[in-house]
Amino acid sequence: MHLSKVLKPLSDCSTGELFVIQELKLEGVMRRRLLDLGFVKGAEVSVLQRSPLGDPTAFRVSDTTVALRHEESSKILGEVLGGA
């Protein structure tokens, strides 16, 4: 049975977690740029590492490493699949 979960922003994930994107709450150029980089619905994202100053955070998406600031990653919603 599948329970509908509350979507969680990517920025709330901790290092090592695996995340599946369900929704992008961004518009315009930033949305398009994220889509181009592979942040599309259904894509798996793993949280790699935070910058020494706490932000931005590096993510692994479609076999590449991309860093996003909290402003953007907090608008990428989805579910945690697993991981640490």
Partner: peptide, 9 residues
């Protein structure tokens, strides 16, 4: 070659 999916895009 190490990130085919995004590159094929």
């Amino acid at each position: 070659g190490t990130s085919m999916e995004r590159n094929l895009n």
